[in-house]
Structures are given as C-alpha cells and as structure tokens.
Write a protein that binds this DNA or RNA. Sequence first.
RNA 1: GGGCCGUUAGCUCAGCUGGCAGAGCACCGGACUUUUAAUCCGGGUGUCGUGGGUUCGAUCCCCACACGGCCCA
Length: 515
Amino acid sequence: MPDRDESPPPQPADNLSSLQANLESRRAKLGRLIARGIDPYPRRFARSCSAADAIAQFEAADAAGLPDDAPPLRLAGRITSMRVMGRAAFLDLRDATGVVQALLRRNVLGDDYALLSDLDLGDFLGVTGQMMRTRTGQPTIEATSLTILAKGMRPLPEKWHGLRDVETRYRQRYLDLIANPEVADTFVQRSRVISGIRRFLDNRGFVEVDTPILVPIPAGAHARPFITHHNALDQQLYLRIATELYLKRLIVGGLDKVYEIGRVFRNEGIDQDHNPEFTLLESYEAYADYNAVMEMVEALVSSLAQDVHGSMQIPLGAHVIDFTPPWPRLSLREELQRRSGVDIDDYPDAESLTRIARQLGLEPAPREARGRLIDKMLSVYVEPHLIQPSFLMDYPEDMSPLAKSHPDQPGYVERFEAFAAGMEIANSYTELNDPAVQRARFAAQEHLRAAYDDDEADRTDDDFLTALEYGMPPTGGLGIGIDRLVMLLTAQTTIRDVLLFPQMRVLHDESERER
RNA sequence: GGGCCGUUAGCUCAGCUGGCAGAGCACCGGACUUUUAAUCCGGGUGUCGUGGGUUCGAUCCCCACACGGCCCA
C-alpha cells in the first residue's frame, strides 16, 4: 500500500469532462466570432438551391458539355464532416436533400478563411461559389465566401456509428434524425402514406372533416379514456377514443362520404404496437356496405404500397407481404374452429366459453365477457397466422355493438377486420342504423360494464341515438390504424419507429434531464 | 402487473476471479492546398444510472429504486 499522505490532491477545477471541454471550446469560438463583428445567428440566407439540386444541375450541365460560366451558387447546410489540411479544407454540408462537399482554400477566401478555425461539426454554414469537380470527380462547391448561419453549442453524436441508444433516440429525436439519416426516410414515407390516403379518398369524393377531440362521452370503441376537465364549463371531458359516432352524425346530416385522419387517445399500456395516442383514419360511405369497404381497403392499401414502397411486395422480417388484391376473405367462426378446434356457436354464453378456454390452456379472467373471450382466442389462435393480407369476416354481435346484424347468421354482424403480418390494420362494419337496436346494444354494453367489471365496454351516447332516430342511410364504415399501416409499408417492427415522439416516462432526476 | 437483460467519457463500445478506469470518434495544441471515417505528432477526458450494504478495498458481489429494452399477462 502506498502512503497516500504525500500524494498531491486532485485538481477538481482543472479536470473538465470532455463534454465541458467541448462546450467551453464552442463558447470560446462563439465569443471570437462576436468579437470580430460576426453575427453567429443571422436572420436569413438566400439559398439558390438545395444540395441535391446543386449536384443534379452540375451533373446535367457537365453532361451537356456546357462551359462553367454559370452564376455562382449559394448553398447552405449543417457541417457534418471537416477535413482540414492547413491552407485548404473540405467540409460536408448536409440539408434535407443530401450532402454537398465544399472546398475552402485560403488563397481564394482570403480573410474569410479565418472563419474556419471557429467552425465546429454541427454548425450551419452558407457557402457561395461555383460547382467544380475534385481530383476524384466529386461535385464540389468551391467557396468564394462563407457565412455562418447558426453556431452549434453542443457536440453531435458520433458520425460513424450514429446514435444507437434507443432511449436517447426517442427522447431527443432530433439527434436521431441528424445521426441516422434512414430514420428521416421513414418519416418522409409516413408523410407520403398520409397524403396518399387523402388523395385516394378525395378522388373518390370523400370530404375530410374535423370532429371534437374533447368529448363529453368517450364512445365508439372498447377502450379506457383519458379524463380531463374544462374549467369554464366546470365539466368533466374526455379525450376521444374514436371518431366514429361524430362521423356517423355527419352521415345523418347528409354529407354521404366523410373521413377524418386524427389522433385518438386510449389509456392503455405501451408496447411494440401500442402508443397511448395514435393516428386513426375513419371513413363512412352512405349506401355502401362492408363488402364495398373491403374492396376499397384492398385498393387503398395496395396502391399505397405501390406508391410508397414502389412494389406490392414488401419484405418484413422473415416474410414478404404481398398486398396485391384480392385478399382472402375468411370466416371468423371457421378460422377459429380450424385453428383452435372450438366452434364458438357451441358455447353461447360466457360461462361455457370460459370453461372451454380454460381447457385450451388460456387463462381467462374469473368473470370475462364472451366477446372478450373470443377476442382473446382470436389473438392467440388466428391473428398470428394472418401474415399475408386477409380479411376476417363476420364477428360475434357481443363484441361489435355498432355493427349491423348479419342477415343469415344470427348472433353475428357484418363486420370485418383486415390483418397483415399478424397485425390488425383495418376494422369495418356495415353500420347499425336502427335506433332501437342501437339503443339495446348500448344497454347490453352497459350491462357488460356492470356485470363483468368491463371498463372498456362501449358507452351509451344518447345524443348519437337521437341522431339515428332522424334516420341514417345504409352506410359502410372503416377504421385504419395509420401507425400500424406505416409500420407495414416501411418495414418497421415497432410503433415507436413510426412515431416521431413516442410516449416516454418523464425523467425525474435533474441530472438526467440536464443531458 | 411478473420475469429476464441493459445503464462505464459528448457519441460508439471494451473492462478477466473484487486491487490505480480503457480504446476509437469528437475536443485541445502543432504539421499539412484535392480530402472522403483525411493523415501524422502531442494532450486528457469520468457522480462507472441513483441510494444503501458487504469488504482492508466495489464499475465488479448483495438489496432497493430510477430509466430503457425484450418476453409473458
């Protein structure tokens, strides 16, 4: 053991972490810029074009053999790489369209070249100059002047390995977007999916509408709501769990073809395909039924695959999902019987179905409603097998309170769900438009809530019933979870990777938040 | 809700059986006018997630907690 008494004490003041050293260095550079009368955060910079356009135009002009007497370009972007070689330097400038390399030479730039020593990775820089080719043939702008556009005061994630830590990727998505360019591609594709849906429905004569997000009755789906309060009205309100009942009111009102793409909120757990807020498309078409909606779903999703992915076949994990229509139409009852050996019609009540579910090795809750038991059986025996796009048709009435009964199958309704990669992507009914039957169905749901402690059972909306009493035409309705659809179309396996800001637990530790 | 795994420098990651905390990138100083993860020389980074415990001694073993991931419900 060495005697510690004579060893020098540590020097806390001199020991800076690498982050502190980096921040200090950037602050010093900022100070030098300001001291030289340079605004490190100017108000504007008139770009002549994007990085991608600069390169494309240069290649085109070069191919046409034009002499390079073109006017100088003004390009701008974030510095993502710097290769400094004394009296010359190459910088990579990145914007949303790509990367363009800039060559800085001291004899060309003169005094402007001194700016180089106060630049860091992550700064935004504007460059004026002509496009030229380097020795290796790379299109490059040779700078005749430099303008700092925004000084970056923190170091970026490492340029080669990117940002891997998933927690940081989601909490600070901007860093993910900077460090991992393929992430930005996914969100551009998401935007294309949504605009493609709008185009598709608009072309078919649908009207896009906005209905309330703050609602007095959270009806229209099986889900627990988020609860809030309006002070001036002194009234409890909920965040909507669906848009269904408001859109049907608009069908009553005669709009005939309506849709909404909007956020809905369900107070549930978070996993690979659930986020408490998600984006839902709902559409309603008067005089259509669920068969017509099925054809529309095939046409919509396959055209989106073609538009966004460039093909109807999309590789996803071990599978290639082929969205080419038509998709198989499968009977729910038959599929469940084929996969589990149980014909649900043999078990007409919750008690008998609970017994057979136990025999199958499922673990139903002590008092579980029949519809929920069937839902559980589907998710175990049927849904995981629905890899290729397919429709599961004709659901039991007790899990579908808003759907019209099936004419040939008592106890069933005209409802389908579409599945792909084992995931539900669409839900549709021939809408129930008989106000008396709807009232009875709501009552049955309220009974389930009370008798089975089912706090996800649907809720009675009397104002909606009044609307139905004025008359709603035969209508085909549809709901599509946009996030899951985007997952399929962009080959992502977690919903977090198609949500820019997935829900995360708030950090309480000050030092962690300070990162 | 339960189980398992993870948390080390700004980032990406090593760290053996408990014995002075490591690399690359980034950063700082120097050289360098066509680089491409530029190169070469030199420099030092730290609340080892947090709080307890065991121990002469804990990044390492134990307990609790926080956050994240995966699996199950």
